[in-house]
Design a protein around this nucleic acid. Structure first.
Lengths: 190, 190
DNA sequence: TTTTTGACCGTTTTTATAAAATGGTCAAAA
DNA sequence: TTTTGACCATTTTATAAAAACGGTCAAAAA
């Protein structure tokens, strides 16, 4: 029985965090939505933050799956990375919980929401880092610091996808790929 | 006489904006510091924001001068750009008004402070854009969209100087130059 | 006449405090 | 043994009064 109850709590909490964000979700509300007494929640999760983290962990797994699916071992590093990054940023752009959390970070800066998005970003960087290491081993990339490379690649990708369109007209998926390849892979120097 | 009064108001306001930020600086306070009646301020500046903009304009001119001084026509594009960017970001890191304004943006998001920092960033991007155009003409760089190139270069530079040290140990000036050259100029692809 | 001023005005921000809501607990009920 | 919701200490919100603010302008000073 307790598995059902736990899942029902997770479902209720997911809905509420997605709808109202971290701060505006109350434990009473989650209990009501899950049809359990409030005390029951605390038999599965030691506090609100841990319940939240469980759900964030799920979201990050989803994002990782999206990235993973983009990898075709027969394809080039660049093609794979572009598909993976585009997919995962698209996921983040459309995933309701991620949307709500970044709104909450912008508007009230809730620490738990900041931390959640940091973890998501960290997961993406780790994924890129792994791909970079593979590509270096397979001589597809020059030898480099994989951590710094992953960090910069994500920064550049986010700049192209999110930041550029704050002042100029958005780039298409193809333009993003072309620019990413031009600046990062080939380099602008002669 | 009125030039003296205007300058005295500007000096007082610069001190106050630097010390307390935009929001916490009051027109009464500026009047007291400048030894003028409050009404006098409004004979030179139509409101608080215009007074602030005048001072921000000064700061941006200083930053431009720093960038300009870094340019040696006999040197390479990359050497010039690195010196200019490092100099201007160092300026921003040490200039008391810029420090106070970015703190104010972080903590309360005052629109006038946001706008001021945007203008500073915009001035830097324009400077880079001009240098990129020159370098393309002189065949030092591949043909490219100068605006997008300048935008990305600044993003990458800021990432290396400010963002990387949020999670890892800061990079030295030489490391920053080396990485910037490696990733942007030469490219990571084989 | 021209320039400078600060008391004054409508509005916004801060302060003070009472009321409501929240995360978490635990004795009792199931 | 598991589940519960009344209960607790603390935090958040609602509200109203007081203070501070940017900006104006009739009068004083130059």
């Amino acid at each position: 029985m307790s598995i059902d109850r736990k899942q029902s709590i997770i479902n209720a909490a997911t809905g509420s965090f997605t709808m109202y964000g971290y701060k505006a979700t109350t434990m009473d509300q989650v209990a009501k939505l899950a049809n359990v007494g409030k005390g029951t929640i605390y038999t599965f999760f030691s506090n609100k933050e841990e319940l939240f983290n469980e759900i964030v962990r799920g979201m990050i797994l989803e994002a990782k799956a999206v990235a993973e699916q983009a990898i075709d071992p027969g394809d080039t590093f660049f093609q794979n990375l572009h598909r993976a990054l585009y997919g995962v940023l698209d996921f983040r752009k459309k995933h309701q919980l991620a949307i709500k959390l970044s709104q909450e970070v912008r508007e009230i800066g809730t620490p738990a929401a900041v931390e959640a998005l940091n973890q998501l970003e960290s997961a993406i960087t780790s994924f890129i880092e792994r791909e970079v290491k593979k590509a270096v081993q397979q001589k597809e990339l020059k030898p480099c610091d994989p951590k710094l490379t992953a960090f910069l690649m994500l920064k550049i990708y986010i700049s192209l996808v999110f930041d550029w369109e704050k002042k100029e007209s958005p780039l298409t998926k193809e333009e993003i790929a072309a620019h990413f390849e031009f600046y990062v892979m080939k380099g602008i120097g002669l």
